[in-house]
Amino acid sequence: MLKIKNLHVEIDGKEILKGLTLEVPKGEVHAIMGPNGSGKSTLSYVVAGRDGYEVTKGSIEFMGKDITEMDPDERAALGLFLGFQYPVEIPGVTTTNFLKTAINAQRKARGEDDISPVDFLKLQKAKTEQLGIVPDMLKRGVNVGFSGGEKKRNEVLQLSMLDPKFAILDETDSGLDIDALKTVAEGVNAMRGSEKSFLVITHYQRLLDYIKPDVVHVLAHGKIQKTGGPELAHELEEKGYEEYINAA
């Protein structure tokens, strides 16, 4: 589903990713673990299409299409989702309005009609209940005044309502207490299936106890250094990243 080939990425002339190759097939959950500064967030932003991340070499292919030059909204409409490490506040735009606008923008890009207001509200109600989100949050500006946990729940709410084919979760566990972590993981697990793939980016193994990955990759120095099964995460938890940090 996602194929990244020999990806080199620069920010302000500084090379962060140095020949990263990664493939996540349909239906699988992959985890990327790595020390701080290894390029984890850069990877998530460049796949989502953020400005300022210059791909100097290599390509990103999604659903058989080269998306390297696409705008972020075009990628989203193809079914790509990025759960932010630091969700952004948007004062004045309510979560409900934001969700509806996003859903309809994606539908429009795919040549579909707008979602009916009734269907939208039904969907929203079902998903907020599932995630334990208080309805009041939906009436507030997106993420404005939300706690860290609420922001992450809101990310998962967006994820489950937009129902993408592929989701990158960037440090979704950071700033979460254990209850919030469980809720978030349940939300993600409920979406798992043979048609969907996930790329879970995390520094710690903790999240992977709740969202069990099929494959674990170690990212350091802008490249995948090692790939293995779930046991690799436990190994990292015990030994730390030292061996990879010193590898360069």
């Binding site: 989203a76 948007i90 934001f98 923008a105």
Partner: peptide
């Protein structure tokens, strides 16, 4: 916020108008 909205599928000009 512009990138955040775009990453949710909202085209840039629409995101700007909304903001």
């Amino acid at each position: 916020p512009l990138f955040y909205m775009q990453s949710r599928g909202i085209p840039k000009d629409q995101a700007r108008r909304l903001l």
